[in-house]
Write a protein that binds this DNA or RNA. Structure first.
Lengths: 248, 248
DNA sequence: GGACTAAAAGTCAAAATGACACTAAGATAA
DNA sequence: TTATCTTAGTGTCATTTTGACTTTTAGTCC
């Protein structure tokens, strides 16, 4: 049961796993949107009984991002709206009682899933959503990982369209503003927020209004998905050696 | 010589390597600073004879960042001024002729080394500096990796103090501006640049001036290193499971 | 002393930002 | 039928930030 094996050239190959921080927004009892993540309960040592990030080993002929997406589907039954690599954690101090022999390299992704879908996600005694502001004790160094993922999410939200990853096809500006408020943890001025969104060519009015409110009916907007939620630079292109570069 | 081995639980563990994109600035024949990276020549298949990023396997009880720093020392004889994880590349299409059995996961770091030190770095027929704007054909998907590292460097330069990673203890504003120009590939207005730097409390005048110029002697500045070159968020803290969190 | 060079300081208009006030369009209550 | 409530949507204004540019300063070189 050792996590380490001898490779052909005499070096020790540490075990490799892919985990994902899955964010969603859910409606709290107070009626406001709140940020939550998906956790699974560990059913074996170490840290048996504690909550941890969903994850698993990497399959032999599986790309890293595919492994994260598969894992997300298997634990929540959902497809991510957005998926990005977060960081590779491979320190030797990833938890008390972890010896260098048990050493584990985790390639961690983070994902956004829609508010509506998240309600339908499978949840049982071993899988569940947890409010980001009141997480239980987590296994390994997963608390740090979640903290870092949250930091990235908050940063990116301010200079990208990531917020749309939480919403469905059409939405009102008030709803979009709620997303920002929930993630950033502070309210935004409605007027200034509207000005900001209107300068973004990727967010366009549908022409229809949302009926049934007890006040003036708001305009519905749509996201022009040809523009992408964020700028990943060269990584958005397929990975091809410019050298002998054929293949597409 | 297979790159894959059977682990105890029956899964195949892919080989894992750590590579680094090492940036420096060097003085070109024209006298201006230009961005360069360190490459090593491959002495075995695949891609034998082509240039590649310096890297090597991860040692059993070595942290990922330590492996990158060690590797940097071994290939250039230098210590990095700045070192940050870039990305984990683990796709199945990392180069022509690479089968799923040869699959390799590369955890790539990027580093900055000082302009002065870089001149002293070891260079022979198998290691050398290459101008970023005229790279040779690279092995594997290393062209993409370099492109991505450059994109990150350029982005971070604009909202951090990373430029100082290329310079030594004291420097003039003109020199610092040269660094920006070299990395970003465009000139900056001297007046506006000065205004920007002067709002940064981490860059302070030493009180001394640089003599020997054929014009008005410029003020020397120093970097207050208590502030850090960039904000890495929660990752700047030591990784400790909040759970049973002792250890420092 | 005059020409030359880059340092350093200053000017100014345009653009972006933050804090508000005001008007519009519906539902609901009197 | 009219007043009230609530949020949508528009408009204003002062402050800050940004980019382009001018002027003055302190040295070297001839």
């Amino acid at each position: 049961m050792s996590a380490i094996d001898q490779t052909a050239d005499g070096l020790l190959a540490p075990n490799l796993a892919v985990s994902t921080v899955i964010f969603t927004l859910r409606t709290a009892e107070t009626g406001e949107l709140k940020l939550a993540i998906a956790l699974v309960k560990r059913i074996r040592a170490p840290f048996e009984g504690l909550w941890a990030l969903p994850g698993g080993p990497l399959k032999p002929s599986e790309a890293l991002g595919s492994a994260a997406a598969r894992n997300l589907r298997e634990t929540t039954g959902l497809n991510p709206r957005y998926l990005e690599q977060l960081y590779a954690f491979g320190g030797l101090d990833r938890g008390p009682g972890i010896t260098p022999e048990d050493r584990m390299i985790s390639i961690v992704y983070w994902a956004l899933v829609g508010t509506e879908e998240a309600e339908l996600a499978l949840a049982n005694e071993n899988v569940g959503w947890f409010w980001i502001d009141s997480l239980p004790e987590l296994a390994f160094d997963h608390s740090l990982i979640v903290e870092y993922a949250l930091w990235r999410l908050r940063n990116k939200l301010e200079y990208s369209r990531l917020a749309l990853g939480f919403l469905s096809e059409t939405f009102t500006l008030a709803r979009l503003r709620e997303v920002y408020a929930a993630v950033l943890g502070r309210d935004l001025d409605p007027g200034n927020f509207r000005r900001m969104v209107e300068t973004d060519a990727a967010i366009v009015p549908t022409g229809e209004k949302l009926a049934g409110t007890k006040h003036r009916p708001p305009q519905l907007y749509r996201y022009d998905s040809s523009m992408g939620l964020t700028d990943l630079g060269p990584l958005s292109r397929p990975a091809i050696s410019k050298a002998t570069g054929e293949k597409k």
